[in-house]
Amino acid sequence: MDLSALRVEEVQNVINAMQKILECPICLELIKEPVSTKCDHIFCKFCMLKLLNQKKGPSQCPLCKNDITKRSLQESTRFSQLVEELLKIICAFQLDTGLEYANSYNFAKKENNSPEHLKDEVSIIQSMGYRNRAKRLLQSEPENPSLQETSLSVQLSNLGTVRTLRTKQRIQPQKTSVYIELGSDSSEDTVNKATYCSVGDQELLQITPQGTRDEISLDSAKKAACEFSETDVTNTEHHQPSNNDLNTTEKRAAERHPEKYQGSSVSNLHVEPCGTNTHASSLQHENSSLLLTKDRMNVEKAEFCNKSKQPGLARSQHNRWAGSKETCNDRRTPSTEKKVDLNADPLCERKEWNKQKLPCSENPRDTEDVPWITLNSSIQKVNEWFSRSDELLGSDDSHDGESESNAKVADVLDVLNEVDEYSGSSEKIDLLASDPHEALICKSERVHSKSVESNIEDKIFGKTYRKKASLPNLSHVTENLIIGAFVTEPQIIQERPLTNKLKRKRRPTSGL
């Protein structure tokens, strides 16, 4: 017993010596996670971090007073192994002897410093981030199933929210409404489509400006004509009531908005009720001829604005009016007729031209339509002016008669200019590109209106002035400009410049 007691005391002394060697000089306990400095002193990692955080910048070693920084600290694995072995020896000594260790306080702390507990403390002390800490805590505590279930439920809930957000973003663009038309193969669909197009076009005519009305009406008319041609002859009974509906809707729209509806009346003529396609083609032919005449008058307007600064050229074209007008009339009417003589009366030419125009518009179905009313009214106005011209010709002399006839021709041009508003800008460009020769010939008609105004002003003063002067240069210039014009009389060319000069002198006297 005595020997055993001596041996136990010796073992205890050895353990105490080893414990003092492996103590931390700051906390005076076994080193936890030993860290060595540049001066080869060993301290606990937790104690050194606490010391360095007390001051900004480098701190001093507690043993040798040298500078220490966080970067200079290094882990010493050898001392950590020695500490672990010492703890194992102490545990074995207690089991063999059955005696508690003399320094129970220190031993209890040593026992608490088992490797499992050290790992837990290291995970908390090290600044490795929240995710690494959570992982280490889960690994160190596998015995708690409640914690695992809560963490898994949190992760699953987070994943569910992310997935639901993604699915919502994908589903939202798919919620856009999609309209699908289910059509049938019955023959009544074509008639319904035609009526739908006509009503939609009328609404567009009321909303859209004048520049786009003609294009819309032309497209709708083409669509309706194609649909009529596709149907068989057996379905004509269905077409006639639908066309009557079209007429009623167009008349109502014309009564409500007459000014807006006139812009599309000329282009919509071939959508009118037709028994066969031949009647629609004839109407299209007549409309094309009318559009040609209207576009020519538009060309004359532009030329008149350009040549208004040259009064000499405008005056020299006075007698070329009849010849150029004959050529335009021959090209406007498709019928083959002989040219009228140069010395014939211009009023007779106008009456013949009106007689040619009237039969074209005397179809029984055309008179029933609303768009032809505008053309009939313009023709009636022309006839009224010609009836007035006959009365004026009986009273005035030959020279005054010529000037009045020219004035009436200008009035006719004004009437025809009203129809110019109905034609589109695209048709003007096509006419100029296809028929430049006709445009040059028809330019002379509009330029002549300037000389007509001068004659009217001469009649106000009650006299006409003449001068025997020749202007050969002007006649040559005008002959080169206009290709299809005829030779003019030299006496009238000489008379016109004198009248304008005298007018300039006598205007201030009349004002006084």
Rank of each mutant, 00 (worst) to 15 (best):
K20R: 15
N158E: 02
L182A: 07
E116K: 02
V191C: 13
F79S: 07
Q19K: 11
A134D: 12
E149T: 07
P142R: 06
M128S: 06
N113R: 04
Y130W: 12
G183P: 10
R131S: 12
L152W: 07
Q174M: 11
Q60G: 07
I89E: 00
I125R: 09
K32G: 06
S127A: 06
N106S: 03
K110W: 15
E141C: 01
K50V: 13
E143W: 09
E33I: 09
K88P: 01
I124N: 15
Q155G: 10
S104P: 13
E29P: 02
Q148G: 05
N158F: 06
R170P: 09
I42S: 02
A134Q: 01
V191R: 09
N53H: 02
T37W: 01
L147E: 05
E121N: 07
V11S: 12
E188I: 07
D40L: 10
Q139W: 07
E84R: 11
E33V: 09
Y105D: 11
S114A: 06
G98E: 01
T97G: 01
Y105W: 14
A17P: 00
L138P: 03
N106L: 11
S157K: 04
K168C: 04
S76G: 04
F46L: 15
E9R: 06
Y101K: 06
Y130G: 07
S146Y: 04
M128G: 09
S151G: 09
I124Y: 04
E188V: 08
D67Y: 03
T161M: 05
N106K: 09
N235G: 14
G98A: 05
Q126L: 09
V122E: 04
I171Q: 05
N144E: 10
I125C: 08
F93P: 00
K119S: 10
P142L: 12
K55V: 08
S151H: 02
T37Y: 08
T69R: 06
S146T: 10
F46C: 14
V14T: 00
S186Q: 06
I89A: 10
I42Q: 12
R71L: 15
I171P: 09
P58T: 09
E116C: 01
L99T: 05
P142N: 15
S59M: 08
T176R: 08
E100C: 08
E75A: 01
F107P: 07
N144H: 15
L165Q: 12
L147Q: 03
E143Q: 12
L30I: 11
L99M: 01
D2Y: 07
S186Y: 14
Q155S: 09
K88A: 13
S76L: 01
P142G: 08
K45F: 15
G98H: 15
A92S: 12
K70I: 01
L73T: 07
F43L: 00
V122Y: 07
S186E: 11
V191A: 07
K50H: 15
L63G: 12
Q139R: 12
T167A: 08
K135S: 10
R163D: 12
E75K: 15
I42T: 06
F79I: 10
M18Q: 01
R136A: 06
I89K: 00
L82S: 00
L82F: 02
C61L: 00
Q148W: 01
L6H: 15
I31M: 13
A102F: 03
V154E: 08
A108V: 10
E75M: 12
H117G: 10
S114N: 13
A5H: 01
G98Q: 13
R7D: 08
N144K: 09
L118Y: 00
N158A: 12
S157I: 05
T77A: 11
M128Q: 15
L3Y: 06
I21G: 07
E85M: 06
S80E: 07
T164D: 10
T176V: 07
I68S: 01
S177D: 08
V14G: 04
D120L: 09
L138K: 14
H117T: 11
Q74W: 03
S123V: 05
F93N: 00
P145S: 12
V35M: 06
S184K: 11
T150N: 14
N106H: 15
G129K: 11
I68T: 13
N66R: 06
Q19E: 13
L73V: 03
E33W: 11
P58L: 15
T161L: 09
E141S: 09
K50E: 15
S177F: 09
A108Q: 08
D120P: 08
P34V: 05
F107T: 03
P173H: 03
I42K: 13
T167F: 07
S59Q: 15
